[in-house]
Each structure stands twice: as C-alpha cells, then as structure tokens.
Write a protein that binds this DNA or RNA. Structure first.
Lengths: 255, 255
DNA sequence: ATTGACATTGACGTTACGTGATAGTATAAG
DNA sequence: CTTATACTATCACGTAACGTCAATGTCAAT
C-alpha cells in the first residue's frame, strides 16, 4: 500500500505540515519521490510514524526520538527510564508550584476577607503587594523548599483524587446553581444543596470552614463586580441567588 | 536608589538580556534613559521586577503577567485560581504520561527477561516493535484513559513520597556499590547491603519480586554492553561486582 | 591615552510545527 | 479539451522567552 502525504496524515492523525517537517529534519523520510515530486510513503513508513507518535505522546523531543527509534531495545529502555526521571522531577516541580499558588490564593482571600470593611482605607493594596514581595523573595531565597514545607495549608496534602473531586465539585456548584435558580427559592432543596456544595468546595481551599467567612464571601461575590460577573456569566442573578441561599444555609442574614 | 541594567540584574537574579527583553515587550520599562542611552531603574521598578519574577516562578506566561500586574487584587486572585486549574490539569496529564512510560519500561524489561535465551532468534525485536505499535494505537484511540486504568502495574499507585524514595534509593545503590567495590568482597556486609538496596529499588518497578528475575537481570547487566557501560561508568567492574553480590544474595549462582 | 568593565542595538538560533503565498499536478465533470 | 477543485510542492514568516554572538559606544581608573 502506498500513501501520499494527506493519506498518511489522515492515517496518523497529524497534519501534512508535520510530515513535511519530519522529512525535513530527517526523522521520517518518504519511501520515494514520484515523478511529480510528490512524497510517497510505504507500510514501513506507516509503522515508523506510529512509533514516532508513540514516543511523542510521552513528551519526548523529536531530537531524542530520532536517536531512540534507531536504537536497540536496550537503549530504548534506558532512554525511557531517563525520561521517566525527568517526568517525575517535572511533577515535583509542578506540585511545588501548585502549593505556592495555593498559598497565594489563600493569602489574597484572607486579606480580602479580613479587610473587607477597610475597603476604602487604601491600606489593603499595599498590604497585599508587600506580601507578594515577601513571597517572591522567599521563593528566590532558597527555592522556598523549607519555607513552603512549613506551610500549614490544607491543600498541601491534596491527593490526585481530591484534586479531581474539587474540579468536579466546582462544576457541580455551578450546575446546581443554574437549576436552583429556576426554582426561585433560595430556601428550597436545590438551593440548599447548592449552598452545601459550595461549602464543600470551599472546604478544600480553607484551613477550616466557618459560617461567618462563608457568608462574608458570598456577600462579596455580590458586592464586587468582578466576582459577580463570574457567577452571573453562569446564570444572570446567580451571585445574589447564591448569597441568599448561603445566608439561609449558614443562618446568617446580615453583612 | 538607582540601578543600571547589571545592578538590577544581579539584584533580581536575572540576565541583562532578560531586562532588555522585558523593556522591549513593555512589561518593565526603566524609570528613565540617561544621556548615554543607558537604562536607569528606580525602586519602583525593583518592586515591579519582584512581582514579575514571582508570577514567573508560578509558570505564568509573560503575556499574562503583563495583564495581571496591572490588575486589581481581585483580578489577580481570579487569575491565580484559573492558573491553578491549569497546573492541576498539567499534573494529571503528567501522571498519565508517567504511567504510560512505566508500562512501556515494564513491557520492555519483561520482554528482555523472557526472551533472554532467544536472544538470537530475531523474534524479540519484532515482538517489541509490535507491542509498541499496539500501545501507540491504544493511546491514540481514546487517549488511553480506560486502557491505562486497567493496568495492574505497581507503579500506578506510587505516591510522591514513594517517587522521591525510589530516586534516593537509586542513588544509594550506586554509592553503596562504589563503597562495597573497595572491599572486594561480594559476600561482605556492604555488598549484601547493596544487593538488598538493589532489590528494594527493583521492587518499585516490578509487580512482584523474584530471586530468579533478580539474578537474571544482574547477569544481563554484565552480558549486555550497554547496561554494563552504565554501571561501569559509576565504578569500573561494578556490573560484575553487583552480579556476584546479587548471586550470593539470591542464593542463585548460574545463568 | 589606554585598558577593562560596562552599556547599546541588532540579529540569528532555539522547538515543533501553523499559516499563508505562490505555483505546479492529478482527476473527474461538462 | 477545458475547467473546476482537490491535491501537491517549496519558500518563508510567526510563535515564547530569552541565549549568544557581533559591532560599537561609554565610564572609571591607571
């Protein structure tokens, strides 16, 4: 069986540009060039493309793939082991980043909540900025290893499963909010379920849950245009509805 | 206080090129340009650089940093939350890759071990290639989600702590090997400790440990030049010494 | 005046292609 | 046989965040 660029590209699920590029860098040459200058690939090239794409999926650079595919099984194994190590390091790096982002978010939220009433004092911005500077310095000091480890934020120990759940929860909150909004009853079952989901979602981010903070936060969702927009994009009037539901849920009615 | 490019670059731990680039893309302009065309930065710019570097550490693109640093605290928080989500997705993607690499390594090792005696039949290469093709297809079929989940490889459930340990163990094996080699006694305490460390290291990669496979593997370390080179680079004669120690350790003496 | 450390502006290289521009070729329909 | 259109080819520029020359100008000290 013979294939032109497009046929092979469809077979492999890549673009024709990719095939021409692979030809250019010498990683996958066509079996022959026909009289019109067209690239013609054979079944051997199909197999080769499969292998290339396989390694590409693993995040290996084309340069290394080039070496790997011409290497023996042993060398391939060694290459894979080395690559595995790189991936693990990358993941640790990612974990560290996520931790730091979490700290930053928690910090910002804390500041927002604490300083909600001083909104116009002009102090807040300075405080937060100072804090960011401090963190930045901290990180650059010693890559933040020790400092970060001392953190007592809950998120630190989030497993992968929990990460998936918090994402799912986030979606669920929004979808339940949409449904609940249709009932127009913040006291209803759906709205209260939504408030409860929101609490569970928050609990992932907060060290410890408190009704006060919860109510405070949803009020802020309404007061601040940017958060309001976020929820209203999901469901117009959603921010207010969520606040009302959470006020009932927490049994707190003023802020 | 005023800073030239180099002074600021040393303060922030970045290259002068980076500062010129940041000027070029408008993310950090100098306070003024002196009569000789030199960039002069003030303390405000130092603060700004701190912030930029902070966000850069988090893996945020300069383009987004540009938006973030001019945004309010609320917007920054929202941006961070969004970024956090991206990081989590990236990590899941990485975990998937690591799993697949593990499968691939285990597969290759399995093939090597199983077919050690058929080394010259020429079947092996074909088998492995076929297998790789199969995996590649599998992955591209449905991103391998289900297929990968069905895997019963031990590594799948490696936590981060375990990942760190296996890396540490790997180093320990090599260092102990070096020390043990000095004793010239594969039956000695150090050599047996090394063999034991090697077993523990292997146990991370294998579904279940067997003395047979262990002895078989270390013999291969000697027989195959590429693996031999790997260990001999650490300690000349290391591959043979490790084999001898493991033969004693496993109480298996022929292969 | 000279030297050495510092500054400037280009401009090309990096990765793995995407996205045109321009031009030649194959194939089926009219 | 012409035409439409579907395909092919080769440039060549753009991407992100700088690294790395190269050529040239400036500052402080000897």
């Amino acid at each position: 069986m013979e294939y032109t660029v497009q046929k092979l590209s469809r077979l492999g699920g890549v673009s024709t540009r990719t095939l021409r590029y692979y030809d250019e860098i010498g990683i996958l040459k066509p079996a022959r060039i026909n009289s019109s200058g067209y690239r013609i690939y054979g079944s051997k090239e199909v197999d080769m493309l499969q292998q290339i794409l396989y390694y590409r999926e693993l995040g290996i650079s084309l340069d290394n793939i080039k070496k790997i595919i011409t290497a023996s099984t042993f060398d391939k194994t060694i290459a894979l082991i080395g690559h595995r190590k790189k991936l693990l390091e990358k993941r640790q790096q990612l974990d560290l980043l996520i931790e730091t982002v979490d700290k930053s978010i928690a910090n910002a939220e804390g500041k927002i909540l604490m300083n909600d009433k001083e909104k116009f004092t002009g102090f807040k911005k300075k405080l937060v900025d100072d804090n960011e500077k401090a963190y930045g310095k901290e990180i650059r000091e010693k890559h933040g290893d020790e400092a970060v480890n001392k953190s007592n934020i809950k998120l630190k120990k989030m497993t992968q499963d929990e990460c998936e759940e918090v994402t799912r929860l986030g979606h669920e909150v929004l979808e339940t909010l949409k449904e609940a909004y249709q009932t127009s009853d913040p006291n209803g079952e759906l709205a209260q379920k939504c408030a409860d989901l929101h609490r569970r979602w928050l609990s992932f981010y907060w060290d410890r849950y408190s009704k006060e903070k919860h109510a405070n936060l949803v009020q802020m969702y309404v007061d601040d245009e940017r958060f309001k927009t976020y929820y209203d994009n999901v469901q117009p009037g959603g921010a207010e509805f969520l606040r009302d539901a959470v006020f009932i849920y927490t049994n707190i009615t003023k802020y």
